[in-house]
Amino acid sequence: MEHIVATPLYPSVHEDRLIWKKENNGEYSVRSAYRLCMNELLDTSHFKVEGAWDLIWKLKVPPRAKNLLWRICRNCFPTRKRLRDKGVNCTTVCALYNMEEEDSVHMLFNCVGIRNIWSMWSAFTSIIHILDGDHDSKDIVFKILQVLPHEDASLFGCVIWSIWKQRKNKIWKEVTDAQGFVFDRAKTLLADWKAARYVHENSVSREQPVCNVKWIKPRAGRFKCNIDAAFSETTNLVGIGMCMR
């Protein structure tokens, strides 16, 4: 109680009112309350999945490819087998070749047609032992991202996206993409995205001013007050400086 009364107030504070601290405007919102619950009140550790997730998020690929890789690794990727597990009444055979059961490892890596696409890639020889050695798509993705250099890892993400696109085209549009086209589409996606980023980054850097970094005298009849603050972690102090000219 004493502490509350002793709190220093700004002169502009006239009346008491309720403020919800988690929003800047002081008003309660479900959004911020949800965040409060998820981040501070509830234990969410059991939702966490082990893995080098940075490998995915640091990839230099379009966000849709990253998102797809993440969904694959979190096993929330709608293969027919997964849909069936979740109670959707559908067949579980591979959508492209109607042969084996369509789980994510089959759909992305092991299906005959998909293997052909991967074998078009120069980096294929360095990842084939991973494809043949593992039976979990999350492990495969992480291992591949770990061994490949940046450029190849980016293309890997785009090929995955293009394979997924091929399956969607087959199911929803009844169009069969040629295997060579699937691989080229991945390369085009990556190249276009990089080109767009290149233009964007250059235009941003052009806005960085190079001049106007020198102090300028005030006009006649006016004063100029320059101010700055300095912080010291060791002494827990803030120093402020003002200079009138």
Partner: peptide, 19 residues
Amino acid sequence: VWRQANEADHSLAKAALSL
């Protein structure tokens, strides 16, 4: 202003920490 044009006050504020 850019920091480079505010150098005097930056130094002053730093010096103020020890006062």
